[in-house]
Design a protein around this nucleic acid. Structure first.
Length: 826
RNA sequence: GCCCGGGUGGUGAAAUUGGUAGACACGCAAGACUUAAAAUCUUGUCGCCUUUGGGCGGUGCCGGUUCGAGGCCGGCCCCGGGCACCA
């Protein structure tokens, strides 16, 4: 008889991790004869240490990967580092350490934490986006986009810190002031690189209808973000425009049916007409200056009270020729469309409020249809419905929305003052950043030749890493040795672009590079054809729009360049809720609050992983609490480990003979196979890992009560314990691999998920709920698939049910087979 | 402000397609073991009422649809995420 082995979390987990590392258990190669599965967790920014949000993200990816391995798939589960970004520069300023050094030491520490958590990554494919061997191909791809005309330069507004002489990110602007200098920020216009994502707007939108593996929530957000609309672009002519090349005000509207109700135009404070009108007008100039002293973040602007001022200019109404006053309004955005809108206060709530505030006329031109229930009182609020009919608009009176839209659009087109247009809210992607710690933009500016892409053979343009950063200006623009270079075309002295890329560029294609991580002769190679697409992408819901839209866009451009053979990068998306700390998203500023290290040291990786999975379903946000970790460890030790060890002491276990079981043995087998069926569905389809854990806990409750040590009793027990180990192994891999070895005398790597045995799950009878008028009045046990008549008969046999049926007429009986019977009485 | 989610016991949650609300845990309480404590085990645990059979109420708030609503519809309130330079 064997001695009972005690479980040592630390040495048990360490030995498994050493074994996995030594055997490279999770390194994969392409194998056409096996079904592949590519599981990817969004890679982390190396901020210093993992926090509980990371633990959740990577544990989920690991659980899915390990489950798919049990299902026999060839699983690619890579990891890398989203290594460029602002925090490295901030740390550099604060601690006087170069960003590269800070980043690499963070990566090293976080790698250790990941290994300590037992994640089944293929470490052979690891890379950081700050590796020149990675960003080289990003630069190469950008020059492809440049040549295709997908890239252009345009002026854009940035937050400018007048003290630090630097561009500020939106998050560095706090209450309108620079985070370090505390000086009020100003807006500045800089010439910047844009990528034409709007060329792909239509496809990005339409493909969403063919992505069943994505949550509706994310698809809805992306649809709204892309914001396709049908409208009319029109001109309000200005015979006496103060701006020479501007002979009218261009506006876009989705409501041309209300054109006759336009009583003023509103332009952005940065609009050329506003600037021109302000010259020599101190009051207007002061207003524009004030508008320019806010951050460029839309959320900040939207919170400002709506204010405006008359420019003194007018334009002609395109249909009536009436003079229409032009106002400047702080809520009109220069980045959207033409930076000007036509205002119809009677039929747009924001215009209505503005008109009331400044005493502008409100002219109703749409009225509810006769007999409609619409509320319409334009003395109190705008009537915005499209279900009305036009009034007060001469020949258009009486037309419904569609016909009015057509008639007025046609009239504008005839006068050459407008045309129908499909518009997108989506704007082109601004990719330049005036920062140091990013991928250098591979463009050389030559006075003679203009912007010239760096030739392929000169790539990568390497970022100098041995630098010190003081927080003022842009470091690269202070390095003449770096930026002075001959023009690749004409050979004359020229300068490199001193901006770097938005870090979303790196994260837009890393998933593809994992297939070809070691390839030096190109961006991607044929291995991508085997691994694409990502079968399951796991990451935080905060990335639902920007990252996921940019990555989808990049994939399509790579497709058009012949680099990938599919339309979309991610088949299935798991959008994780946030792990909150004190009610808010965890971030670098939350410090060590979410550091899992203490918990790992105290309770081990399995307990941390299990507690995290058990805490909540993946899509749900929740406040992290450490309470569950200790109890997870206790359950693993006291329920799982010790139960298996006790079983092992019983010695030889015979082959299970399902035909020769007692009722009690059949019952445990039924629970085992029902649990297998339920958890397989939870893992594969529902992605409900919290209920996997509770189902196994529940099953082990039955196991504890099973004390039959007869030969077939041991066989049933052996099957139950093996099932529990397999089911738990994706979540708590260390202890399960050790137990599997004990139980079966061989390593767990080749283990396969056991199919649930249908015949073991058949129950002979079922509990039926009895309701009277929808209220629970009793329960009866019936043979499975009993008829409505039998169910009713059995239900009436209960005194309590009868009590509620007395003196009543049964009007209806609703029978849901094997669930309930409901007597409707009156 | 705009777009998208969420709200269920003291706490995390479960209820998968409109069919038993609160599984599984945490916490708490009582008990067993112990000189004692820890650990472990057992029992109880939504609220109110009760003749101890059960009854009434209850899933953020108000209303609706339905034989039946946590899940559907309309209107609110609160919380979280995103809003293009945090990643």
């Amino acid at each position: 008889m064997n001695e009972i082995k005690n479980y040592s979390v630390a040495s048990g987990e360490e030995s498994m991790q050493a074994y996995w590392a030594e055997n490279e258990t999770f390194a994969v190669t392409e194998n056409e004869s096996r079904e592949k599965f590519y599981c990817l967790s969004m890679f982390p920014y190396p901020s210093g240490q993992l926090h509980m949000g990371h633990v959740r993200n990577f544990t989920l990816g690991d659980v899915i990967s390990r489950f798919q391995r049990l299902k026999g798939k060839n699983v690619l589960h890579p990891i890398g580092w989203d290594a460029f970004g602002l925090p490295a520069e901030n740390a550099a300023i604060k601690r006087n350490v170069p960003p590269a050094q800070w980043t690499h030491s963070n990566i090293e520490y976080m790698q250790g934490q990941m290994k300590r958590l037992g994640f089944s990554f293929d470490w052979n494919r690891e890379f950081a986006t700050c590796d020149p061997s990675y960003y080289r191909w990003e630069q190469w791809f950008f020059t492809r986009m440049f040549r295709k005309g997908l890239v252009y330069k345009k002026a854009a507004w940035v937050n400018w810190d007048p003290v630090d002489q630097t561009v500020l990110a939106n998050e560095q602007v706090i209450d309108g002031k620079g985070w370090r200098s505390d000086a009020p920020v100003e807006r500045r216009e800089l010439s910047q690189w844009f990528v034409r994502i709007t060329d792909y707007a239509e496809e990005l939108l339409d493909r969403l209808d063919h992505m069943p593996g994505w949550p509706d929530k994310v698809k809805t957000m992306q649809r709204n973000w892309i914001g396709r609309s049908q409208g009319v672009e029109m001109t309000f002519p200005m015979p006496e425009s103060p701006v020479s090349d501007m002979t009218g005000v261009d506006v876009y509207t989705t409501r041309p049916d209300t054109l006759l109700g336009a009583t003023y135009l509103a332009v952005a404070p940065q609009h050329p007409l506003a600037l021109s009108a302000a010259s020599g007008k101190a009051e207007l100039q002061a207003f524009l200056d004030r508008c320019n002293q806010t951050s460029v973040a839309e959320a900040d602007m939207a919170k400002l009270p709506k204010e405006g001022m008359f420019t003194g200019l007018t334009a002609k109404h395109p249909l009536t020729g009436t003079d229409i006053p032009i106002w400047v309004a702080n809520f009109v955005l220069m980045e959207y469309g033409s930076g000007a809108v036509m205002s119809v206060p009677a039929h747009d709530q924001r215009d209505f409020e503005f008109a009331q505030k400044y005493g502008l006329p409100i002219v109703q031109v749409v009225t509810p249809k006769p007999g409609s229930n619409d509320v319409c009182d334009i003395t109190t609020e705008a009537y915005v419905s499209k279900n009305g009919v036009v009034m007060g608009s001469g020949e258009y009176d009486g037309l419904e929305f569609d016909r009015a839209f057509d008639a007025i659009s046609t009239a504008l087109e005839r006068k050459s003052l407008g045309k129908r247009k499909v518009n997108y809210r989506l704007r082109d992607w601004l990719v330049s950043r005036q920062r140091y710690w990013g991928c250098p933009i591979p463009i050389i500016h030559c006075d003679n030749c203009g912007p010239v892409p760096v030739p392929d053979e000169d790539l990568p343009v390497t970022l100098p890493e041995n630098v010190s950063i003081d927080g003022s200006g842009s470091p690269l623009s202070k390095m003449p040795d770096w930026y002075n270079t001959p023009c690749p075309k004409c050979g004359r002295p020229a300068v490199r672009d001193t901006d770097t890329f938005d870090t979303f560029m790196e994260s837009s294609w890393y998933y593809a590079r994992f297939a070809s991580a070691d390839y030096d002769d190109g961006m991607l190679d044929d291995r991508m054809q085997y691994w694409r697409n990502v079968d399951h992408y796991v990451g935080g819901e905060e990335h639902a729009i920007l990252h996921l839209l940019y990555a989808r866009f990049f994939h399509k451009v790579m497709r058009d360049e012949g680099l990938v053979g599919s339309d979309e990068p991610f088949e299935k998306l798991l959008s994780l809720g946030m792990v909150l700390k004190d009610g808010a998203k965890m971030s670098k500023s939350a410090g060590d609050a979410g550091d899992p290290q203490v918990l790992l040291d105290k309770h081990g990786a399995d307990a941390v992983r299990m507690a995290m999975m058990f805490a909540a379903p993946p899509e749900q946000s929740f406040e992290w609490s450490e309470h569950g970790v200790e109890s997870a460890e206790k359950w693993l030790r006291n329920r799982l480990w010790s139960r298996v060890q006790e079983h092992l002491r019983q010695g030889e276990v015979p082959t299970l003979e399902p035909g020769k079981l007692t009722e009690e043995q059949k019952e445990l087998r039924r629970v085992t196979h029902e649990t297998l069926a339920k958890t397989e569905d939870d893992y594969g389809r529902r992605l409900a890992f919290n209920t996997v854990v509770s189902a196994v806990m529940s099953m082990m409750g039955h196991v504890s009560k099973f004390e039959d040590t007869s030969p077939q009793g041991l066989a049933v027990m052996q099957e139950a314990l093996s099932a529990a180990i397999v089911i738990m192994s994706p979540i708590t891999p260390h202890i399960c691999h050790l137990l599997w070895q004990d139980l079966h005398g061989k390593p767990m790597e080749g283990a396969i998920w056991p199919e649930a045995d249908e015949s073991a799950m058949i129950a002979s009878d079922v509990e039926l709920i009895v309701q009277v008028n929808g209220k629970l009045r009793g329960k009866v046990t019936l043979a499975i698939d009993a008829s409505a008549e039998d169910a009713a008969k059995a239900a009436r046999a209960s005194d309590n049910v009868l009590r509620f049926l007395e003196d009543k007429t049964i009007r209806n009986v609703v029978h849901v087979p094997n669930r309930l019977i409901n007597f409707v009485v009156g």
